[in-house]
Amino acid sequence: MHLPDGVLSLPVAAVTSVIGAAGFATGLYHLRDRSRDRTPVLMGMMAAFVFAAQMLNFPVFPGVSGHLMGGVLSAVVLGPWAGACVIASVLCVQALLFADGGLTALGANFVNMGLLGSVVGYAIFAELRRLLGGGIQGTLVGAMLAAWVAVLISAGACALELAWSNPGIAWLPLLGWMLLIHAAIGVGEALITGLILRSILAARPDLIPGACHAVPSSNQIGRFALAGMGLALALALFAAPFAYDAPDGLETVVEKVGIDYSDASEPGSETQEIQPTKAPMPDYQLPIPGLSSMRMATAAAGVVGTLIVCGVAVLLARATAGSHRLPRPSVPIEAGSHGR
């Protein structure tokens, strides 16, 4: 998902860079009080960890593997803005030293993975945790679902940026494909985030702000509320772009009449936004299946992914809460002084 140089058009790169810079400045502003405690050190450590962890691939399904993105993980541990700064540092090092992700796409990558992945991911996490009544289980389940949704949001933003950069590109199938692929990657991200958080919550829950505040009474109801909300969120996310053109049935008209929309190469922005996707050109149809099957597949992936993440999250949370004992720090250092 690291966009390289030359994929985004200059206006898109410029706009995303401006948004990214503004978001980054906001993050630094929020972090100004925290530079006195150990936040800077932990941010560096977190960046180093994300960097080291990203070299380990996990199997998504045979032949496809993904790696940790870490936006939600770092936000859960350090807070949303510090998490975004960590992602920015990782992206910076990857772009400058390894040419992984382009220099001109740095802004877009930061918007996708830092602002959307970390800040928005944290907002989802905080809301889910509140609904779940907090505590260790709420933290774990909330973080896993947030990680899954955050990956989808990032992928969606990535697809939209690509579509905007290449006028005339079939943006709806592109979005569908991105979401479909990232549904699998997102499940992986959620599982890895959950497994890492499980280790932390079992050994050092004090590292995660708010993990020790539980409201046990609402736990049972909360869990159901969470599942329902997570499902609704994911479905809304998946259905939104498709529900949009379903009523007018423009696409079916195009299919029937066979109008070639593809020569609409003038760079008007409004027209492309609602432009139907499938033009009956053989070369062009080749990699993209019919939109209706795409819609079904994407929606199915959304439901299945949400259910998998929910199920594993609840199982992991039960296991963690069951085996949870008093934490034993291996170093005699006091519990964290980092608020969020």
């Binding site: 829950p205 004090d206 702000p209 708010g210 020790c212 505040h213 250092i333 006091e334 519990a335 964290g336 002084s337 980092h338 608020g339």
Partner: peptide, 10 residues
């Protein structure tokens, strides 16, 4: 650190 406020979380 002991007298710091973060202790309350734990």
């Amino acid at each position: 650190r002991t007298t710091g406020g973060a202790l309350h979380s734990h």
